Amino acid sequence: MTCVLAIDIGGTKLAAALVDETGSILRSATRPTPRADVMNALAALVTEVTTGGPPPVAAGIGCAGPIDLATGTVSPVNMPSWREFPLRDEVRRLTGLPTMLAGDAQCFALGEHWLGAGQGSDTLLGIVVSTGIGGGLVINGSPLLGPTGNAGHVGHMSVDPNGERCECGGLGCVERYSSGPNLVRWAVGHGWKGEPADARTLAEDAAAGDAVALAAFERGSRALAGMIASVTAATETTRVVVGGGVSMAGKVLFEPLARALDDVAGLAFVRAVRVVPSVLGVRASLAGAAKLALDHSPSS
């Protein structure tokens, strides 16, 4: 049976696996992302996973961005040792395999479409709500990557052109309202005194009925709803899968999100979109990287 090497690279964790064409993980390993010498750590991880296992026919990589598909380079915001790093060529040189690269959120969307909460959908939007907000689109079963590989950057869609200035330089970006740190920032600015002041504590306080914590999630959910309605109107998305650390808040996030989407969506096909939580969780990006490799392997 055909198998591929899947790699998921983030600011805190490196993961690799051998995955067969059914999506079963044959071998896997993880390790923390070092501050320096990331490629050496990745090489050791790949060697650990592939030694003694069935030979993979291709490799797929999901990596934090920005990325540049034209050059195969990556410049992850939270990995300062990699700036315009030639990741695709380095993995190709390391493994001798045909190698595909995409953003980690794009791989999240593709993984959920293949094996998770997006199965059976025609057009899917995957959203990762965490320290930032990432996204990816799957259109007719294929990831929409864009010319440079940065399509699906929904966290930096403007939901309020007269709104707050985002860290990216734009105005009114979803991330400025809905990411974990920005939920907390707004809540602290309005009198919330959670300890520690992080998104998990904010979600716990919202679940316990704290008025400011609840208002922070209402505000963040409305920004997410505006973005979802806009993407759905543009692409006729049929399903939205939400993952990431903030999604672990459960109904504290999903109930106000459903109310806000019901309010802001007008057209019937926009109102028909289904919003569901991730099924695969942290495994979604690795699954998407595997699917990317399988779809572009020599045997496909």
Rank of each mutant, 00 (worst) to 15 (best):
F85M: 06
L87W: 06
L87S: 09
R88K: 15
D89F: 08
V91Q: 12
R92E: 12
R93F: 07
L94Q: 09
T95M: 08
G96C: 03
M100Y: 12
M100L: 02
L101T: 08
L101M: 07
A102D: 11
A102K: 07
D104H: 08
Q106S: 12
Q106R: 15
E112F: 14
E112K: 14
W114L: 11
G116F: 15
G120E: 02
G120S: 02
S121P: 09
D122Y: 11
D122S: 13
D122H: 14
L124A: 07
L124C: 04
G126H: 12
I127E: 04
S130I: 03
T131L: 04
T131K: 00
G134W: 10
G135M: 03
S142C: 02
P143L: 01
P143T: 05
P143R: 04
G146D: 12
N150T: 13
N150W: 03
H153L: 01
V154C: 15
G155C: 10
G155W: 02
M157E: 12
S158M: 08
S158D: 14
S158W: 09
S158C: 03
D160C: 06
G163I: 10
E164G: 04
E164L: 15
R165N: 11
E167M: 01
C168R: 10
L171G: 00
G172M: 01
V174K: 04
